[in-house]
Computed example of a mutant assay.
Amino acid sequence: MTPAGLRESVARLLRGAAMRVDRGWTQGGMARDAAGCQVTPRDPDAVCWCALGAILAGRGARQHACIALSRHIGGRFFGRVADWNDAAVRTAEDVASTLRACADRVERGEL
């Protein structure tokens, strides 16, 4: 895949993750079903996702997308994204808008 193709794939994945978070967001787990039980991000019963879970539920360059998001929020490790997502002050709107802003930066070649 070309660098431009990879950027496009990562940005698409991040935007898809933002759409998942718009539908349902969680903290303290990657994904949850309608009963609030933790499930894997790709489980068909998943109805809400954390930032990382929303990325991992997608297809494509997931590792690159996770790294881009981590860098976008100022971290160096995926754990930083989980801590950021789970902060008491964080909202679903924060997460979705950050995923979209990260996608924009990836498209511009900044990440």
Rank of each mutant, 00 (worst) to 15 (best):
T26W: 02
T26A: 06
Q27N: 15
Q27T: 15
Q27Y: 14
G28T: 13
G29H: 02
G29T: 14
M30G: 03
M30S: 12
M30W: 03
M30V: 02
A31I: 04
A31H: 00
A31Q: 09
A31P: 06
R32W: 12
R32A: 08
R32N: 04
R32Q: 13
R32Y: 11
D33T: 12
D33Y: 10
A34C: 07
A34Y: 01
A35V: 07
A35Y: 14
A35E: 15
A35F: 09
G36D: 12
C37W: 15
Q38Y: 02
Q38A: 08
V39F: 12
V39C: 07
V39M: 06
V39T: 04
V39W: 02
V39E: 04
V39N: 02
T40N: 09
T40W: 01
T40V: 13
T40Q: 12
P41N: 05
P41V: 04
P41G: 09
P41T: 07
P41L: 03
P44R: 15
D45Q: 14
A46H: 12
V47D: 03
V47W: 09
C48L: 06
C48W: 11
C48D: 02
W49Q: 00
W49C: 01
C50P: 08
C50A: 13
A51K: 09
A51S: 15
L52E: 01
L52K: 02
G53D: 05
G53S: 08
A54F: 14
A54T: 10
A54V: 08
A54P: 14
I55L: 10
I55R: 11
I55A: 01
I55N: 03
I55P: 09
L56I: 04
L56E: 11
L56Y: 05
L56T: 02
A57M: 05
A57K: 04
G58P: 11
G58L: 06
R59S: 14
R59N: 09
R59D: 15
G60A: 01
G60S: 04
A61L: 05
A61S: 14
A61W: 06
R62K: 11
R62P: 07
R62W: 05
R62F: 03
Q63N: 08
Q63R: 13
H64R: 10
H64T: 00
A65V: 05
A65T: 03
